[in-house]
Structures are given as structure tokens and as C-alpha cells.
């Protein structure tokens, strides 16, 4: 049996006594875009934080490349090739664009290829080259989102987890963001995408899981889910 790139088995996460994620199992295979969709508070971000080690699970297992790593700290997870782009950009506002990118290559897996990765970042996001010496805090919202993705790519991740990359961006920038995700996908980066922008996400995703109050309630190929009547009732009516 071929191993999954990332496999989450029967995961429970609590904030104090409050359950945030219940009995969640899912996987991401190599070179796939897998989406987690669901409304606010469904547990999507918690799930990503648990995978990247920011939050400890109460129960369950997380396997990356077949190895369990539920006990690792965030910096160790990143070192293994799993990069998490958290919600809300989280740039170092006072550091320059270049410094933000350099720190993206902090892990040993990214450091030797700093120059090459920097060139690639500027090919993907030409606008960043023009801003290279500016403090990250002076960039527009769209540019900041590009920089967070570019920064995460500097570590040469095998799997990129993106939390709401389109949040708070103008429609034209949202479209650009999805194009970039497609480009990364074509280049062979596997992606776990959390989004509220359900339509665009499902059209692009190879596979998707729907999370509702901490549990996975539906799963399927992106395009199929869009056709699924349960899913339409639950989400598209609301969002439509």
C-alpha cells in the first residue's frame, strides 16, 4: 500500500473542556490539492494548528511520510518539510521583504538553497522584487499574502498548509491567489487548503473534506461535492 503524505487518524482536540475537533481522519496524497471547507468555528484552523504542533491533540495520530509526529514542536515540524501558513498573514512587519524571505529559509532544508528559492519567489511574485527593501508592514494586503506564501515556500516544503489565503482580499487578488495555488500544484507542491471561499476552492481541489462542528461530515472529489445535493443544501444555499 502506498503511504500517504499526511495522514490524520481519529484526532480529538480540546480547548479546555470544549471539543474543537472530534474523531477526524483524513489524508493528503503527494502532489494533490486537498481542501478543508466548513463554516466559521468548524475546527479547520484548529486542525491545521494541531498538525503543525501549535496545539496538542487529546487523542489520535498524525503521520507525515509514514512517521508519527504528533509530539513534535512547530519548528521541528517545519524542519521535516511541512509548512503552515497561518491565518492572518503573520508577517514580521518591521522586517524587510528580503528579511522575511531569508527567515523563511531558516530550516536546514531550505538554507543551502536560499538564493535559488529567492529567485523562484520573485518569478512567482514579481511584485515582491520591487518591494524587496520595504518593511513587510508597508505592503498592501494582497502583497502581504503573496509574501507569506513566498516565505513559507523558502523552506522547500513537501506539503504546504494554507489557512484562508483569500481572507480579506479584493476579488481580483483572490483570483490571483487561486492561480498561484494552481501554479504551485503544477510544480509539484502538495497543498492542504483551508478556505471559506467554497466555490473556487472545490473547483480546484482534487479532494475535499467538509468539517462541521469539529467533525468531517462529507468528503469527496471537489467537483463531485459541488454537485452533491446534501452539500448544496448545507453550504451553497447559505453562501450562494
Amino acid at each position: 500500500m502506498a503511504k500517504h503524505l499526511l495522514e490524520v487518524i481519529d484526532l480529538d482536540v480540546f480547548y479546555g473542556d470544549a471539543p474543537a475537533v472530534r474523531e477526524v481522519s483524513f489524508h493528503v496524497d503527494e502532489n494533490r490539492v486537498v481542501a478543508l471547507v466548513g463554516s466559521n468555528g468548524a475546527g479547520k484552523s484548529t486542525l491545521l494548528k494541531t498538525i503543525s504542533g501549535l496545539v496538542r491533540p487529546k487523542k489520535g495520530e498524525i503521520l507525515f511520510l509514514g512517521e508519527p509526529f504528533g509530539h513534535l514542536r512547530p519548528e521541528e515540524v517545519t524542519e521535516l518539510g511541512l509548512s503552515h501558513v497561518p491565518e492572518g498573514r503573520r508577517l514580521f512587519a518591521r522586517l524587510s521583504v528580503r528579511e522575511n524571505l531569508e527567515l523563511g529559509a531558516f530550516p536546514a532544508r531550505g538554507r543551502p538553497r536560499l538564493k535559488e528559492s529567492m529567485d523562484r519567489a520573485f518569478t512567482l511574485f514579481p511584485v515582491l522584487r520591487k518591494r524587496i527593501h520595504q518593511p513587510a508592514g508597508s505592503l498592501s494586503g494582497g502583497e502581504q499574502q503573496m509574501l507569506t506564501i513566498a516565505r513559507a515556500l523558502m523552506a522547500k516544503p513537501v506539503l504546504l498548509m494554507l489557512d484562508e489565503p483569500s481572507l480579506g482580499l479584493a476579488p481580483v487578488v483572490v483570483r490571483l491567489m487561486f492561480e498561484i495555488i494552481e501554479t504551485l500544484h503544477r510544480e509539484g507542491v502538495s497543498i492542504l487548503l483551508v478556505e471559506q471561499n467554497v466555490h473556487q476552492t472545490l473547483r480546484m481541489a482534487d479532494f475535499a473534506y467538509v468539517l462541521q462542528t469539529g467533525r468531517i461530515t462529507l468528503r469527496g472529489e471537489g467537483a463531485d461535492l459541488l454537485e452533491n445535493s446534501d452539500f448544496q443544501r448545507a453550504y451553497l444555499g447559505m453562501i450562494g
Binding site: R73, P74, E75, S83
Partner: peptide, 10 residues
């Protein structure tokens, strides 16, 4: 500036 974001970068 942001310890958690830094940890996520390794």
C-alpha cells in the same frame, strides 16, 4: 514581533 509565526518557520 511574532514568536508563533517564527516557530512556524522553523
Amino acid at each position: 514581533e511574532d514568536m508563533e509565526a517564527a516557530a512556524l518557520l522553523g
